[in-house]
Design a protein around this nucleic acid. Sequence first.
DNA 1: TTGTATGCGTTATCAT
DNA 2: ATGATAACGCATACAA
Lengths: 365, 365
Amino acid sequence: MVAIGCRGHEDGRRRVGRRRRSSRPAQAGGDISASPRPATLRDVAALSGVAVSTASRALTRPGRVSGETEARVRAAAEQLGYAPSGPARALLSGRTGVVALVVPDVTNPFFFSAVRGTQSRLRQGRFAHLLVDTEESPAAEERALRDLRGTVDGAVLAGARLDDERLAHWARELPIVTINRSQPTDHVVVDTPGGAVQALQHLVSLGHRRIGYAGGPPTSWSDGRRRAALAEAAGRLDVDLVDLGSHVPRREGGALVADAVVTAGVSGVVVFNDLLAFGVLARLAERGVVVPDEVSVVGCDDVFGADLVRPALTTVAVPSERAAYLATDLLLNRLEGTRTTDAAPPPPLPTHLVVRGSTAPAPRP
Amino acid sequence: MVAIGCRGHEDGRRRVGRRRRSSRPAQAGGDISASPRPATLRDVAALSGVAVSTASRALTRPGRVSGETEARVRAAAEQLGYAPSGPARALLSGRTGVVALVVPDVTNPFFFSAVRGTQSRLRQGRFAHLLVDTEESPAAEERALRDLRGTVDGAVLAGARLDDERLAHWARELPIVTINRSQPTDHVVVDTPGGAVQALQHLVSLGHRRIGYAGGPPTSWSDGRRRAALAEAAGRLDVDLVDLGSHVPRREGGALVADAVVTAGVSGVVVFNDLLAFGVLARLAERGVVVPDEVSVVGCDDVFGADLVRPALTTVAVPSERAAYLATDLLLNRLEGTRTTDAAPPPPLPTHLVVRGSTAPAPRP
DNA sequence: TTGTATGCGTTATCAT
DNA sequence: ATGATAACGCATACAA
C-alpha cells in the first residue's frame, strides 16, 4: 500500500498520480475552432485568486462570502463562460434536475399534449425534460425505467404498458407518477370511462340501438376501464354493445374497424381514440358509407385535427395537457418534499362530449 | 495541512473522514416501500466477493476477466438490480449519452416531426433524448445552450433563433447541428425557398397575377431565404408579390393574415407554414371569403391535418422528420469521430408541392 | 470569511 | 486475471 504525503508537510501535495490532463486554463474569448475544455470551478477559482470552495460558495451561497470576493468570482466565472457541471453536481447531490416523460408512441398527437403539459410545468421548476418512447413495448418500458433510475429524479408515465406488479416494483425504485393508470403509484386519472358512457348515451339518445366499441391495445389500462363502464351502461340503457376488437391506436388501424362496423351492422361506433377514428372515417368514405347518415362515429381525445376533418369528429374531449401538467406537478412536489407518497390522489379529471358532425340520428331500418 | 496515512501502513486506511453514509448493502427483492439506495458497483463487488475494478470489467469488458468471475458478477448485479450511474460515468468520461433537441415551440406540429426524427435516430445510437423548448426567445435559447454544455454530448437545433455570431460562439462550445440554418455550424437544410417558388409558379400557372406572402418570425433564417427566392422569382415571372408582413407561426396568427389578404386585394397567398394557413382558412371562412374560388391559399410543411381541413390545404411538403433524422445522424457521427467538422454538408433536402383543394384558377376580375 | 480535505460512483492505470 | 488507487468536478464539514 502506498503511503500518501508522508514525505513531509511542505511538499506533501495531494496530487500524487500522473499529472492533471491539462493545466492550461480555459480561455476566455479565444476563438479557437476546436472547442476548448469547458471552464471548471477550479479555473474560476484560479483566475479570481481564491480557493475552489470559496468560488463554489460565491456562486451558490450568496452572502457567505465577502461582497468583494463574490464580485471577483462572479466576474471570473462570467469571463470564462463558466457553467457548473451537471453530472458532477448530480453525483454529489444525488439529484439530476432531470425528469423523464415516458410515452408509448411519440407519434401520437395525444402524447404531444403530454409533452406540452409536462414541458410547461418542468420549465417552471427549472427541470430538464427527457423524452422516452417505448414503442408500445412493455419490455422497452421496463428497460427505460431501469436505465432512468439514477439518471433522472423522477418519471411521468403516460400510457404505461407495464403490468401492475412490474409497475409497483419500479415505483419503489424511483419516483413515478402515472397518467391514466391508477394502480399502484401516485397518479392522475382522466375520466375517459365516463366520457365513453357519455358518448354511448349520446348515440342512444339519437336512436341508435346497436352500437360498437372499437378498443385500443390490450395493454391499455384505460381501455379496460372503458370496456367495463360501457358494458355496465349498455345493460342499463338496454342497447346492444358489440365488441369490435382491439386495434393499434393509429390511423392505419381504422380500416379494420370500418370493415368491422359494416360487418357487425352497427349504426354507431365509439372508437378508442381520434387517430383511429380518423382512419375509420377515411375507410368508410372509401367504401361509400356516408357518415353520419348511415353510421355515426365518436372518437376520444379531441386531438388537433378533430375539428378539421369532414365531417368534423364528435369526440370526448380529454384535458390531456392539463393531466400531464398536473402529473408533473405532483411529481415535483414529491421531489421537493411538499407531497408525501401516501397523499390522496387528485380526483379524476372530467371529460366532456364535443358534438360535431360525425354523429346523427340512427337511420330508419 | 493534514498528513494522510502517516501513522503507518497497516492502519493507514483511506477513509479518514466521517464514515460512509450507509454500510447496509442494497437489498435484493426486499419489498420495502421506501425506495432503497440504488445498488452501486461496490455492492455488486461485495456480493460477488471481488474488487470493484473487477466488477467493473466484468460488466463492461467481456473477456478481460475469467468466465467464472464474470458469471458471478453478472448474477450479483442482476440480483441487486444494479444499473450503472449515468452521472458518475459522465463525470469520468466526459460523455453523457444524452443529446438535446432544441426547438422554439413544442406546440408546433412541425417540431413534432423533428422530435420523431431525432428520437428514432437516437434510439438506434442508444442515446437519450432531452427536449428543450425555447419559446421563440433567442435569450432562452442561449441560456439553454449554456446549461446544456456538459450535460449533453451535443445538440440538434431546429429553428434556431440565435443570430449568426452567437450561434457560431456556441457551436465552438459544444457539438451542434442545425436544421434549416446553414451558417455557420454543421447543418441540414430543407429547400423551402425552392418549395415557395414552386408554390408561386403554381399560382401563376393558375392565372394569379397579384400574390401575397405571409411571413413567419423575423428571426427565422428560413423565412429570410424564402423572401429572397420569392422576390427573385416574382421578378422573373412578372407578377406582383405583396409582402403581407411577419406573423406568429400559429393558428392564431391567421386572422391577421386573412384580413391583410382582403385588404391587399391579392387573389392568392403563400403562407409561412400550415398552422398559420389553417388560421387563414378559418378566418376567411368567417369573413365569407370562399377558398379557393375567391382566394387561393398555399401552406408550407404538410403537417398532420393539412389533408383533413376543408378545403384540404395545398402545401409545400417538407421532409422534416427525415431532416431531423439526418441532422441527428450527422451529430452522432461527429460524436463518434466518423465525421469531421469540415466535412461537406449534405445537399438541401428537396421539397415538393402537394396540390389539394385550397388553390384554383384566379377569379375573373 | 476563507482554505483544506473528503467523498459521490465509475473507469483507467498501475501493480501484483 | 485481479486488486488497489487516482481522478473526473463539485459541495460541504471542518479547521484556521
